[in-house]
Nucleic acid binder design. Structure first.
Lengths: 225, 225
DNA sequence: AAGACCCCTCAGGGTGCGCTCAGGTGAGGC
DNA sequence: GCCTCACCTGAGCGCACCCTGAGGGGTCTT
């Protein structure tokens, strides 16, 4: 989760950065309004924390500019004022939530999480490799337009490969992900299931989609074979 | 826009109802927690305003119950307290925003509008999958023009599927939605009720509308089978 | 009181699926 | 060219998943 913090008070900005990093977020800083707007436009952040009083360009105007461009990134506003009309204004220009300085760090994190949760559910999209496609939600696999029916194990295995195209996955890693972190059975199952998959997803006369890397593991060709 | 107000102080509740009606909302009132949860579950509201201190069932628990059932109706919490941890708690259990009594009416309306703006995508009133159609409001199901009569359980189950066409729903998810978030009975009920539904909604010689995905759950074909 | 309807449990049976095993195959090193 | 070792694969077994019919308990209607 990437967060942009636009805040000119350096000490507060740094404190937020440290704190949010501990919570597991990736945090970028902007110290004035222009830089903030530039980054918010380009950066693909999951949320923006925006001070109102900023050099060069106020938080209000950044937010309004973003919304005018149909950029709906979640925005959490910070303000030194606490008049109710400021709050109402902030929400009306398209901010998603509002926090008054001095604020509690606990509340900030809670509001941030609430924001992210609300804007979360863009369906986990379909994974593809060449004309191979896998839809985790629908639990379907297709080669081109033709649906391929897989067993749960085969499906999980293929999903793992398609999440790491062109990457060599060792049998140990595969066992840990598809079977169990503490799986103690025969590593031969991996070979067996790779075999099953090949028979179902490979196209006649094509290259193997699932390539053996002798001594290292297996790799799914990103172009699907 | 339909709003549910759950508030035990009758005078405040009435004031909100009058005020919001002037703004153009349709407002229902519930005066205790049980009634509130019941209405929130059934009513198809666009937002819920929820007091925390309530007879029978607190606002906290209502909100948590709704979220556990994957009901993401926007919730605006009202509270007499103003401790920061209460606020954090409220947001963490899934409320979308929070207001401390005594609150300004202007802020309440602003927050409510912000909530509604965020949750824009209005749901279609009739759900369809191929020539299967289900009307949540009228509580009717049709295959083509022919009406199919379902029991309440069957109806709830089919509604869940039709809200997630082409998506695999696990038995656990189904139990949590259609039965109870903390249902502890035999998962076999799901199989039984899927069976009932199939006998009623499947057309002879057609594909199954409700497909079994072995080891994963069930899926409703978006084209209705 | 009887019937209708609904919800749910239970047990039996079919079978798809996971896994093992053992013999076969091919790549790479010397 | 041969040996070794990693990998491949066909056969088969047992289980767990799923389906279904039967039936009991509860509630509401007649």
């Amino acid at each position: 989760m990437r967060i942009l913090v636009v805040e000119d008070e350096v000490r507060l900005a740094r404190a937020l950065q440290r704190g949010l990093r501990v919570e597991g977020f990736a945090v970028d800083l902007a110290h004035d309004g222009e830089e903030g707007l530039f980054l918010a436009r380009e950066g693909g952040y999951d949320a923006v924390i925006l001070d109102i009083m900023l050099p060069k360009l106020s938080g209000y105007r950044i937010c309004r500019a973003l919304r005018a461009e149909h950029n709906w990134v979640p925005v959490l506003m910070l303000s030194a004022k606490d008049g109710e009309y400021d709050q109402a204004d902030g929400l009306d220009i398209g901010a998603d939530d509002y926090l008054t300085k001095p604020f509690s760090y606990v509340v900030l994190v809670a509001k941030l999480r609430a924001l992210l949760r609300r804007t979360a559910p863009p369906r986990p999209s379909v994974l593809t490799a060449g004309d191979l496609s896998l839809d985790p939600a629908a639990h379907t696999v297709k080669r081109g337009d033709e649906e391929i029916s897989l067993t749960p194990r085969e499906f999980t295995l293929l999903e793992l490969f398609m999440r790491h195209p062109d990457e060599v996955l060792s049998k140990t890693e595969i066992l840990a992900h598809v079977w169990d972190a503490y799986y103690e059975g025969d590593p031969n199952v991996v070979e067996v299931y790779v075999g099953y998959l090949r028979r179902k997803i490979d196209v006649p006369y094509g290259r193997n989609a699932l390539q053996t890397v002798r001594g290292a593991g297996y790799r799914l060709a990103a172009d699907g074979g």
